[in-house]
Design a protein around this nucleic acid. Structure first.
Lengths: 214, 214
DNA sequence: CAGTCAATTGATAGTAACCCCCATAATATT
DNA sequence: AATATTATGGGGGTTACTATCAATTGACTG
């Protein structure tokens, strides 16, 4: 979502570690600033609540001006929502072998991507998702992308089945897939522990694969 | 959504017609004010775009103060989004005979409700939905209710099948239904003419009933 | 039908998210 | 080292929304 051409290596808090190779000083500084904003935003939201946290506080904590903060993130919501994994999943989806059913391909794509994420990043995602699902304003902003998601899934389904992407049947199918996904996420976020997001997702995808038996 | 205990008879522009029976003067005035705000908001949004319209303009057009406008609608978005039909569909859903499958029951519920709506109200709904789907901010606000919708469907599905409403399988199923619905709406809104929302919806529901064949 | 009570309204002041613009400072290039 | 480029901070402005309070309007009673 809101795909920036910036740092996929994101996990912060390693000031001395001297970021990997080829990037210029400028790039490194930007990445650090960006990560600092995200980190402090997440922390403050968790500590005091989303509405109770002002962007001024976030800016102050990250030691930048508000102007700068808004240059990095177009809205307050994006400070926590900005996420580089959506296009990755899409790519993994496309990379699945053509003989798989669309549902199986999606399930596999999600597995592949999640498997490639480090534990610390995984924990970060977990915390972000929890916020994104529990704070109404963030929920709204996240859900904003469902149309795009449906479109992407429909496109991939169309390619696999030789139908048109704007066929109502294809879109309905894609919508159902995405709806199942979202429902699983909500289900996960509603649990008190909310530990195993990946298992929940995979279980839901398995249901989908089996044709949603009741 | 955002269920107010107010006027279901909504279509405005009948100042002389002396509203139906039992309501007090006060109630009638409130209903008229409410309708006026909605009507002018919709009109202005269509004429100048959502972002280009300020709530001040809406208030002015409806001849109320901003304070009053915000007493009737908690947010700018709600001036167009406030919608009394959601609970009606839920009721119709519950009222379907128990032997129907959940999907069939939902399809029938939608049919029943839509059949009961007058042509002028139907046209109003059409225009609102078009705005709600095409303006990002409105889309976000509309989508905010998907969690609630999933919950409601899951509840009804649970009652029909004797399972728990917070069962992941039930929720996934409910999510898929809702996703199919949403996809159909987007599909409809993306068409240039965007005439027959009810036929599109019903067709999508039929796909769902048939198990989403591709 | 006057008078009181409750509900509704409008005006005013304030907060917070964001935008635009320009001067300055930091990095990059030659 | 001089110059070009880009990032930053600050100031001023707009708009959605909130809180408060006084004034108005409709409802009800004797």
């Amino acid at each position: 979502m809101s795909v920036d051409p910036v740092d996929p290596a994101d996990s912060a808090a390693r000031p001395a570690a001297a970021a990997a190779g080829s990037t210029s000083l400028r790039e490194r500084k930007k990445a650090r600033t960006r990560a600092a904003i995200q980190r402090h935003a997440l922390r403050l939201f968790q500590e005091q609540g989303y509405d109770q946290t002002t962007v001024e506080q976030i800016a102050e904590a990250a030691e930048v001006s508000q102007s700068t903060l808004f240059r990095y993130f177009p809205t307050k919501e994006d400070t926590v929502l900005a996420d580089e994994y959506d296009p990755v999943i899409v790519a993994a989806f496309h990379a699945q072998p053509a003989e798989l059913s669309p549902t199986t391909a999606l399930r596999q794509a999600i597995r592949d991507v999640f498997a490639s994420i480090s534990d610390t990043d995984r924990e970060l995602i977990r915390q972000r998702q929890l916020l994104a699902l529990r704070v109404p304003q963030l929920r709204a902003a996240s859900l904003l992308h469902v149309e795009q998601t449906i479109q992407v899934i429909a496109q991939a389904v169309a390619e696999r089945t030789g139908r048109e992407a704007d066929d109502l049947a294809v879109r309905t199918y894609a919508g159902a897939m995405m709806g199942a996904w979202i429902a699983a996420m909500f289900h996960w976020a509603a649990q008190p522990g909310s530990e195993d997001i990946f298992r929940t997702m995979d279980e839901a995808m398995a249901h989908l694969e089996d044709g949603l038996p009741l």
